[in-house]
Nucleic acid binder design. Structure first.
Length: 650
RNA sequence: GCCUCCGUAGUUCAGUCCGGUUAGAAUGACUGCCUCGUAAGCAGUAGGUCGGGAGUUCAAAUCUCCUCGGAGGCUCCA
């Protein structure tokens, strides 16, 4: 029999009979590896373990510990879920069941709707079936054969037609007596799967193939980890994350509220939330001033004609609040600031010397977002945008774009964000009707932006077909503590505004030039979303400069109230946000309450402090510093705020 | 907008499945006592048309329908 040489990841070479499967090799290397094996990477390509190897190859066994292996494990459980559902409700139409970040899901069309109360029943059935399963057996089928497996299931038929294009063979995988159309990627044996390593979590509606034009299916979500220990750890982490939820903390810390009488997606900022908002806004004003921006403010309403001119009507109309008809025409609430800024650009004759012109505003916009998408402060209908538009020539794009990226990185550094990456959204040249027809502009500006990202050495990925219709953009993606990914900041290049608004300037030779590029940017997102991120990122423990109450002074008893008031006056004079708690409660009680309010500096004053002109300081990390000289304290606090430090050190 | 789930004092929750005394608790608020040294002193008082509306019933927080609001998904997006 012919032998083949297999090179393993550690560089060692083993000889096997030609036609051996990767799964057999895994068992040959070690029993444990054989059990944990999920997939094989042969010469860099992910393959099924049952694939026969017929020539000299490099082989890496992928186990449940690897990303691909974990996916295989989760996907195997998706098969099990479908099997359980099909046993319980045989006339259900099954569709697809991929692995996802912490588990998997499977989409079904049930003939009678199920409810979340059915999940334990399904879970029980899965555990009943599990011991009857072992290896996944691969088989091939033609489209006609495959369709027979799914009578009346138009979803599977659609997939079969698609996958069998060009006469390709379809593959089925079977374990126990459950078989499903599948391209592979499973655990080598279900015997290695622990019955308590997964949990069905919730139901959700999901459109077939992600399009709202298609029927809506019932999606069953599950979490799954190789061991119960890991599953429990994950569930615990989710519980912890819930404690940081900005909706919960926003209420507990009196930052914002909502009212049915006002309407959904319309938060009401309370004094403490407003303080944070104002601090962030002041920071932005300061930063933008240094960066050469000019600040404006524009009305929240405008006539319909403005938004027709900008093209937002009808293109963006369904995301705008409906028109208000008055005696002199129809008005709309603005959903964006750009049209106004373009008018500002146009309000006088511009020269090349004016460029780049940077116009900024914290503009209050209103967008009629679908009610189902609203969520706390993360998705709202009232948006306080940290907006600005940069009007520049093509040869200035690189510098301006780069400066905005630097500004964003600096902002994030100040706020202490680390969990983010840049996403460059490009046009799709094969889908041209979606985009403004300026192929050369698309290609050249995308190249400029890509270069800027590389030059700034930031982590970024590229996505084709995600650009706005008027130009490429860069979004900065951020992961919330609950694991959801959201866009935080955005920079967009626009080469349609110049046409819509006839933007132009006089060139050096006094010729009219219409090549005005607009950069839209919102580094600090909207106040609403940004503060939602901050609350969760800091778990409500804001840095001193942002804290709504920076200092609370607790008097040990009535006798020391006067001293407490005196130092409070001193703090207030220095523009600090300080208050006195002189209630005749125990010190423990007052400390507890101040801690719950996450006040960064809790000062206690009694006999010793009054006599020595000192304070006892309790910092947010629960450390107590006794006998701190008042002047020292004040100096350190002022410096900390000035430098926008994240932590307080005394 | 669509799917699943949820809505009871300011807040967190019990009671809802299986309709039946004046709807409970904790915490917060208020009043009084306590004058207190670093995460909860003691006592009392007020606070709820059970999100809103309609229906079924002798009787509805509880069952049905509509509606408003919220959560998680889908689609969309800062």
């Amino acid at each position: 029999m012919t032998k083949i040489k297999i090179t393993l990841p550690d560089g060692s070479i083993k000889e096997y009979a030609k036609g051996i499967t990767a799964g057999e090799i895994a068992f040959d290397i070690g029993r444990r590896l054989g059990q944990d094996a999920v997939l094989a990477k042969i010469n860099g390509n992910i393959k099924d373990l049952s694939i026969q190897i017929k020539e000299d190859s490099a082989l890496q066994i992928i186990t449940i510990q690897d990303k691909e292996g974990l996916d295989g494990f989760r996907h195997s459980l998706a098969h099990l879920l479908a099997a359980a559902v099909m046993e319980l409700w045989p006339d259900t139409k099954r569709t697809i069941g991929p692995p996802i970040e912490n588990g998997f899901y499977y989409d079904f069309e049930f003939s009678n709707p199920i409810s979340e109360d059915d999940l334990p029943k399904i879970e029980k059935k899965m555990r009943e079936i599990l011991p009857k399963w072992d290896k996944f057996e691969r088989s091939e089928a033609t489209a006609a054969e495959a369709k027979k497996e799914y009578p009346n299931n138009q979803f599977k038929h659609e997939l079969i037609d698609e996958f069998s294009k060009d006469g390709k063979k379809l593959t089925f995988y079977k374990s126990g007596n459950y078989s499903d159309l599948c391209r592979g990627g499973h655990v080598s044996s279900m015997k290695s799967v622990q019955p308590d390593s997964f949990k069905l979590t919730h139901l959700a509606g999901a459109y077939w193939r992600g399009s709202e034009k298609n029927p809506q299916l019932t999606r069953i979500y599950a979490v799954a980890f190789p061991t119960k220990k890991e599953l429990d750890a994950y569930l615990k982490m989710v519980e912890e994350a819930k404690k940081r939820d900005h909706k919960k903390l926003g209420r507990e810390l009196d930052l914002y509220t909502t009212s049915e009488l006002v309407g959904k997606g319309l938060p009401i900022w309370l004094p403490k939330g407003e303080t944070i908002k104002r601090e962030i806004e002041n920071f932005a004003i300061e930063t933008e001033k240094k960066a050469g921006y000019q600040r404006v403010s524009t009305p929240v309403l405008a006539k319909k004609e403005l938004f027709i001119k900008s093209g937002h009507i009808p293109y963006f109309q369904e995301s705008m609040f409906p028109e208000m008809v008055l005696d002199d025409g129809a008005y709309y609430l603005k959903a964006m600031n750009c049209p106004y800024h373009h008018l500002i650009f146009n309000h006088k004759t511009r020269s090349y010397r004016d460029l780049p012109l940077r116009i900024s505003e914290y503009g209050l916009c209103h967008r009629f977002e679908l009610s189902g998408t609203l969520s706390g402060l993360l998705r709202v209908r009232m948006l306080s945008m940290n907006d600005a538009h940069i009007y520049c020539k093509k040869d200035q794009i690189e510098k301006e774009f780069g400066d905005v990226i630097k500004m964003i990185v600096d902002y994030y550094k100040t706020f202490g964000f680390e969990n983010y990456y840049f996403r460059l959204s490009l046009w799709d040249p094969n889908n041209r009707e979606k985009y403004i027809n300026e192929p050369e502009n698309w290609e050249s500006t995308q190249e400029i932006i890509r270069g800027v990202l590389k030059k700034n050495n930031v982590k970024f990925e590229e996505v084709m077909g995600e650009a706005a219709f008027y130009g490429p953009k860069v979004d900065i993606q951020f992961k919330t503590v609950t694991g959801r990914e959201e866009s935080m900041s955005t920079i967009q290049l626009d080469f349609i505004a110049k046409k819509k608004f006839g933007l132009k300037y006089a060139d050096k030779d006094n010729k009219e030039n219409n090549e005005v590029y607009v950069i839209h940017r919102a580094p600090l997102s909207t106040h609403e979303r940004f503060i939602a991120f901050l609350i969760e990122e800091y778990a409500g423990k804001f840095p001193l400069w942002l804290s709504p109450v920076q200092i609370r002074i607790l008097s040990v008893s009535d006798k020391f109230e006067k001293y407490a008031r005196k130092i409070n006056e001193e703090f207030l004079k220095n523009n600090l946000r300080s208050e006195v708690d002189s209630r005749t409660e125990s010190i423990s009680y007052k400390v507890r309450e101040a801690q719950a309010q996450k006040i960064p500096l809790i000062l206690t004053v009694g006999e010793k402090e009054e006599k020595n002109g000192t304070v006892a300081v309790r910092t947010i990390d629960n450390k107590i510093h006794f006998g701190v000289k008042l002047d020292d304290f004040l100096g350190k606090v002022m410096k900390n705020i000035e430098e926008k430090k994240i932590k307080v050190e005394l």
